[in-house]
């Protein structure tokens, strides 16, 4: 009897284990095939030899990384001096993405605060309104923006018609146009996490601060912001990371001068002119860079928290 009961028990456990394996399959599929496999492919491709009409030759090579970091003169036969071209593009990308993130924060934070402080029943409506433009394809939105911003576009027409400016503002093909484009591309990623954080915020803390003689600004800076910091950080990461690798806004709004890392990578895979291993190497470097930035950030965050508590 005892043995029967025991084996019955283990049978149930087996069934349970089997079910669990199958139920966890989607998670494994996502992790292996959608996350790890592409990165692994990229890593492998970055160490292969380029085929002149696109694609790769399966032959191990450092050429892609060499091209990225080393300047070997006009004929490619000199020793390695550091190549600044691509690093400059990287630096510009970080700067542009950072500026776009700050812009998103400056506009997104008040927006999120506004939504979170509306009556509970209308908040979903506001969130809905914020997301409506994002039902339209990113390409179409960015192209529309190009038309909106150009010298003889509606924005300049409007500003001139109300007499604010005399001659058209030259916005298109500037850094600022790229920042605007990135800002508009990813604004909801800033608004939504901050909104979620502010909605959870206990507003009696603000009352307590005011009760203890704090001004509105002090209350915002010393009470509200620390409380919603996780939302702000999440928003900044969600805007910064895709902005860094973005190519639509820089291509369409920034012109040739404002080339960003995303465009560089995109070109390597387009048509016959590309260089797949080089694109893959640039992607790997970008990925590593983002990881390093995030790690430094997380490290400092942990340090600050330790210092506080």
């Amino acid at each position: 009897m005892a043995a029967g009961a025991a084996s019955g028990g283990s049978a149930t456990t087996d069934t349970y284990k089997e079910a669990r394996t199958w139920l966890l399959m989607p998670a494994w599929v996502v992790l292996l095939f959608l996350s790890l496999a592409p990165v692994a492919m990229m890593l492998i491709y970055s160490f292969l030899t380029k085929e002149f009409r696109g694609g790769v030759i399966w032959e191990f090579s450092f050429a892609a990384y060499d091209q990225f970091f080393c300047d070997r003169g006009l004929f490619g036969d000199e020793g390695c001096t550091f190549e600044w071209t691509y690093m400059t593009i990287f630096w510009r990308s970080i700067w542009q993405a950072g500026a776009a993130t700050l812009l998103s924060l400056a506009i997104g934070f008040p927006t999120a605060y506004f939504i979170a402080t509306r009556p509970e029943n209308v908040r979903p409506l506001w969130v809905f309104l914020i997301t409506i433009p994002y039902w339209v394809n990113l390409l179409i939105r960015t192209v529309s923006m190009k038309f909106l911003l150009r010298d003889k576009g509606p924005l300049n027409d409007f500003l001139m018609s109300i007499g604010l400016i005399d001659s058209p503002l030259h916005i298109i093909n500037t850094n600022f146009a790229v920042q605007l484009g990135l800002f508009y591309s990813y604004l909801p990623f800033m608004v939504l996490p901050i909104y979620a954080a502010v909605e959870r915020y206990n507003f009696s803390l603000s009352e307590a601060a005011a009760d203890l003689y704090a001004s509105k600004f002090t209350t915002l800076w010393r009470i509200l912001l620390p409380a919603v910091k996780p939302g702000v950080i999440a928003g900044c990461i969600l805007v910064f990371v895709p902005s860094l690798g973005s190519f639509l806004a820089p291509d369409l709004l920034g012109g040739a001068k404002n080339f960003m890392i995303g465009s560089l990578i995109e070109e390597q895979f387009k048509g016959n002119a590309g260089n797949w291993p080089f694109g893959a190497a640039a992607s790997m470097i970008l990925l590593s860079l983002v990881l390093v930035i995030l790690l430094i950030f997380a490290r400092q965050q942990a340090k600050a928290e330790k210092a506080e508590g």
């Binding site: 206990n202 009696s204 803390l205 009352e207 307590a208 601060a209 009470i223 620390p226 409380a227």
Partner: peptide, 11 residues
């Protein structure tokens, strides 16, 4: 004021 939920600053 002493608040009902205390409203102490958590950070």
């Amino acid at each position: 004021t002493v608040f009902q939920n205390y409203a102490l600053f958590p950070h």
